[in-house]
Amino acid sequence: MPVVMDGDRMARTLARMAHEIVERNRSLEDVAFVGVRTRGVPIARRLAEHVEKIAGVAAPVGILDITLYRDDLSRHAVGPQPLVRRTDIPFSIDGRRILLVDDVLYTGRTVRAALDALVDFGRPRAIQLVVLVDRGHRELPIKADYVGKNLPTAPAESVQVRLSEIDGVDEVAIEGGEAA
């Protein structure tokens, strides 16, 4: 189960992504981060901290739970259905540029659900997609604006992003597939 990104690499990757965000958004006044539960949230917070250090602007961070927007409820008889938890976006998204943050971009269905959810909260000026890992195998026409690492994978493999806030360690690992 190879670790493809350790803690150091992750810190550097996030710092680099924060710089890109600052470069691409001249004015940061109307930018806000929205992290997709679960692991998009700490990533969004870390990016917001970096951005504040770099540009001196404290962008707000919201939490988006997309469970109720998923399109696979009861499509399969087995398998875990995530707990529904609160969405917490303590600011108006109207007219803002939203940086939508998730850990892994895969089929694109999570992002599709997140976009549906976001627009129920208002009308942002723009939405940009930020992901730590893009592992390919898209099923929808969705592309990330900021990618920490492109990671070619086999469909049978799974990509695990672990974050110290949740998992006690910062790393990205590939699990399963032929290697296992």
């Binding site: 409820l73 009861s74 399969h76 089929t107």
Partner: peptide
């Protein structure tokens, strides 16, 4: 919550 949980049973993305 009841409606949602009874209808549920999807798997992860």
């Amino acid at each position: 919550a009841v409606l949602y949980l009874l209808a549920g049973g999807g798997d992860g993305d």
